[in-house]
Computed example of a mutant assay.
Amino acid sequence: MTASVVPALSSTGGKSFLPSIDETSSTSKSVRELNGDAAVIRAQAGDLHSTSTSLHHRTRDYALSLSRNDWGRKSPADLLAHLSELGFAWRDIARMVGVSVPAIQKWRRGERITGDNRARLTQLLAVLQMVTDEYLISDPASWFEMPIVDGVAVTPIDLYVAGSVELLLDWASHHEVDSTVVLDKFDADWRQTHVDDNFETFVAEDGELSIRPRHMS
Rank of each mutant, 00 (worst) to 15 (best):
T53V: 09
R68A: 13
L66H: 07
G207F: 04
G163N: 10
D133S: 14
D116E: 12
F17N: 05
L80G: 04
Q123T: 15
R212W: 05
G207D: 03
M130D: 02
D187R: 07
L167Y: 02
S179R: 15
R32S: 06
E200F: 03
P147C: 05
A119R: 14
I157E: 05
V161F: 00
L209A: 14
V31D: 10
L121A: 03
L128T: 04
S164F: 13
T193W: 02
V195I: 07
S16L: 05
G98C: 13
G163R: 13
L168T: 06
G115E: 08
R108Q: 10
V6R: 11
A77T: 12
S4E: 07
E176Q: 08
D116Q: 12
A63M: 09
A8E: 10
V99E: 09
E176N: 08
L86S: 07
F199M: 09
S164V: 01
L121Q: 00
T180V: 15
H56K: 10
A188N: 11
A38T: 11
R42D: 05
I104K: 01
R108D: 01
L124Y: 02
R42E: 15
R73V: 02
D197V: 06
L168V: 04
L159A: 12
D158V: 00
K74D: 03
D78H: 14
T180M: 06
R95D: 12
R91D: 15
T122S: 14
E134K: 12
L34W: 07
D189L: 08
A45H: 14
D197M: 07
P102S: 08
H56E: 11
H175S: 10
Y160A: 01
L183R: 02
P102C: 06
D37E: 12
T132Y: 01
I41H: 12
A141C: 05
A172N: 04
R118M: 06
G14D: 15
F144N: 03
V182R: 04
R118N: 08
L169C: 09
A39N: 13
Q44I: 03
V149R: 06
I41G: 05
F186H: 07
V40C: 10
A8C: 04
S142T: 13
Q123R: 15
A162K: 15
S25A: 12
N117G: 06
M96P: 07
D92K: 08
R73K: 13
D22G: 04
W143Q: 00
P76N: 02
Q192H: 14
G163I: 14
L125P: 00
R42G: 13
T155M: 07
E145P: 00
A172F: 06
R68F: 08
H174N: 15
Y135W: 10
A188T: 08
S30V: 11
S217D: 11
S138A: 08
T51R: 11
K29F: 06
R91N: 15
E205M: 11
G163H: 14
V161E: 01
T180F: 11
L79D: 08
F17C: 00
D189Q: 13
T27C: 06
L136P: 00
Y135D: 03
W107F: 14
Q123K: 14
G110D: 08
